[in-house]
Design a protein around this nucleic acid. Structure first.
Lengths: 242, 242
DNA sequence: GGGTCGCTTTGTGGATCCAATCTTAAGCAT
DNA sequence: ATGCTTAAGATTGGATCCACAAAGCGACCC
């Protein structure tokens, strides 16, 4: 908490920090649906939005391309990738295995406090989605945050940073607003999601690594199947803009 | 005067293709040990080496940074990451889980021909490393290729492109010449590696998914442990250049 | 009236420019 | 000799420039 005047200037980021920051902000716009699937990304527009030149924007786009979130067409710019249902299933199968491993590892390291934290996150998520469905909450972002927290907490408790990163890498491939909306809008999905989380939690609390892994694997595969179905439906529908 | 053949100019790459190509070539230099661990990467040098300007080189470096192969220090350029032993263990634990999944999936899809292909790759690898240890072969690159082939083949047979990519992403984090040298130079490691591959192969041939996964998991964890030990030894030794 | 050719516009992408920063080394003082 | 200050050189990193490619548009020809 220094009163140093370094605070005055917004500490203009530079280099890798700037590029990563730009990538984050662009990714966020996609994750929340602000930039919809299939939309074009104009370098000049992004650059002026963020108050930088096109150079760092291009580097950020290149990163997003590597992660698969966007596709860059030669001389024609970048578009937000439209996930193929089969790709969703493949990705979620991998994610399921990784999160299962995370849950199994977490059993040996989780504390009583952390279990309570997870319980709170799960309860919060349920409350948010209920509020949303009754029209109280304005958007699904709170819900998404709580749901993400549940999973990232377990990943971090696993104590394997690489594992957490691998899981995150896969998640960053698909816009998150879609899966959030699925849970929020469909009461069956909502309840099921809540109960699956509860079961995972119980296994963690019981110290049963085997069961925690199995429950987690099933949970993620289920979620992937829901998401894949949504994209299937979408692609079979006549496109009519966002 | 130049002949009007477009063939002479090697179809100059551009855009993503160029950047990916540069990243590949730089990664290769690191993987083979041509650029050793901890070495500096100068943008201008790489640019002139590859006959391009610094702009695409920087984008390529950014990609390698994201994958973790190099570290970029603000205003001070990039250096090849020096893997920490604990990071190696973590990464290989993840890789083990992924490859185990790949092996389990491969059981249901593998053909008789592919089993034979794997057997050949494994045999080749053994022959290469024997030749190397008796001084016949000049380097470990052939060995590395065969070993990589064994693993990438199984990953691709799994039929899950995401899975193959996830495995590859982890592998690209660590220079490969080290693990190859380990196997080539130590006859105990060499024999063990060969036999572990054989056991995986047998499980695949028997159609036993459970065992294939278990054998593969063990094999990768073992390899990771060897590699981690090597880096431990290295870091505890007084640095004396490469 | 439909299709094709060519011009114009828009945007990407590598090359270049220059400011900012880090490193090195020399100079100066203690 | 040691340590601090400062000037020069090297290198990064964002901004700008310009060549090229692709989509849009209109005129012209059949």
């Amino acid at each position: 908490m220094t009163i140093e005047s370094d605070e005055l200037a917004p500490a203009r980021k530079t280099g890798a920090a700037l590029v990563d920051d730009l990538a984050d902000r662009i990714r966020n716009r996609i994750m929340t649906g602000e930039i919809p699937i299939g939309a074009q990304l104009r370098q000049a527009e992004l650059a002026s939005d963020f108050g930088v030149s096109r150079t760092p924007v291009r580097e950020a786009l290149r990163q997003l391309q590597t992660s698969g979130l966007i596709e860059v067409l030669p001389n024609r710019g970048a578009v937000v990738s439209v996930p193929a249902p089969w790709d969703v299933r493949e990705a979620y199968e991998v994610r399921a295995e990784l999160e299962a491993l995370a849950a199994a590892r977490a059993v040996r390291r989780i504390t009583r406090d952390q279990i309570e934290q997870l319980r709170v996150a799960n309860r919060e998520m349920y409350d948010y989605s209920l509020a949303r469905s009754t029209g109280t909450a304005p958007d699904e972002r709170d819900h998404r945050r709580s749901n993400d927290l549940f999973h990232t907490l377990i990943a971090s408790i696993s104590g394997n940073a690489r594992l957490a990163k691998a899981i995150n890498d896969i998640n960053e491939t698909f816009p998150r607003n879609v899966s959030a909306q699925l849970i929020v809008n469909d009461s069956r999905h909502r309840d099921e999601n809540f109960r699956e989380h509860e079961r995972i939690l119980q296994a963690l609390a019981d110290g049963d690594a085997e069961r925690a892994a199995a429950e987690m694997r099933q949970h993620v595969v289920d979620a992937g199947e829901q998401l894949a179905r949504w994209y299937e439906l979408r692609s079979s529908t006549v496109f009519r803009g966002e």
